[in-house]
């Protein structure tokens, strides 16, 4: 538009950056707070200290929570990625009115409020004896995360030429071979992105976790939830930093791994 140097434009630009700072800065306050030398929540003034990190990594409770969260997030990411990728390929190839309705149905866990998912899981998990177990958490998180994989893999498939798949099949390759040698390599960035999103979704999931895990399984977000409600100990700030660092590392990794591959660049642009 015209008038980029006008007053209004400058105000708008400044306003937009203010909103962006409002978005990012408060979320990162955990970092300075985690470095405070005091025993209460505060920003370090004269000196910094790593005592709360020492606390975090020497506490059996926090360590076991971090470990449990990692195991569950990896398990859920693997399960969601395998099932979601296969499903996305199937739906992409079938592509009828009916299969598109199935796709909409499979996206429901992303749309239905987590609190309702939590109620649903809770009742079934009681009956199946899956409450408070690794398996129960992994399955629940995988069901919630599979739609993410479905979306990213479908986006990658949209850029993939179906003729390549037909050529492979016509040349006599069976479906498993075609999947492994032709389709998977071409949509790898989409699969990878889906896996990372699934991992992050499980890694910081709290609402369903509150309902289906109580004692034996106590994930990092679950322990932070308790810590936040007590709201005094800066160890929670250190845990928050660990939570963010793992999330951002996973994202960065997926960006780096898919860099330079054309399909990934296209998916990212849209």
């Amino acid at each position: 538009m015209n008038g980029r140097s006008s007053m209004g434009w400058c105000f708008g630009r400044a306003g937009a950056w203010l909103v962006l700072l409002f978005l990012v800065l408060p979320a990162l306050i955990a970092l300075p707070v985690s470095l405070t030398p005091e025993r209460y929540l505060s920003v370090p003034k004269d000196s910094m200290s790593l005592r709360h990190y020492a606390n975090l990594f020497s506490s059996d409770e926090w360590i076991s929570s971090i470990f449990q969260s990692l195991v569950i997030a990896c398990g859920a990411a693997i399960l969601a990625t395998v099932l979601g990728t296969l499903c996305a390929i199937g739906l992409w190839r079938i592509s009828t009115r009916f299969s598109e309705a199935i796709r909409a149905l499979l996206l429901l866990p992303l749309i239905i409020p987590p609190i309702i998912s939590a109620m649903a899981f809770y009742r079934v998990w009681v009956k199946l004896g899956l409450l408070d177990s690794y398996l129960g958490m992994i399955i629940a998180h995988a069901i919630l995360a599979a739609p993410m994989v479905l979306i990213t893999v479908s986006a990658a498939l949209a850029n993939f030429d179906p003729k390549l798949e037909q050529a492979s099949r016509n040349l006599g390759a069976a479906l498993p071979t075609t999947l492994r040698r032709v389709i998977f390599p071409s949509i790898r960035p989409g699969i990878l992105a889906g896996a990372v999103f699934a991992f992050i979704l499980s890694w910081d999931e709290i609402v369903v976790t509150l309902f289906i895990a109580k004692f034996r399984v106590f994930t990092l977000p679950r322990r932070m939830w308790d810590g936040i409600r007590e709201n005094t100990d800066p160890t929670v700030a250190a845990a928050a930093v660990v939570l963010i660092v793992v999330t951002l590392t996973a994202l960065l990794l997926s960006v780096l791994l898919s860099r330079g591959r054309a399909p990934a660049a296209e998916t990212k642009e849209t």
Binding site: L20, L23, V24, P26, A27, L28, I29, A30, V33, L41, I200, D204, I206, P221, M224, W225, I228, N231, V236, A237, A240, L243, I244, T247, L248, L251
Partner: peptide, 17 residues
């Protein structure tokens, strides 16, 4: 970045602030 920072961490941050 803001999109991906956990909702729990953000609630904690606002409480601290």
């Amino acid at each position: 970045v803001s999109f991906w920072v956990s909702v729990l961490v953000r609630a904690f941050a606002w409480l601290t602030l």
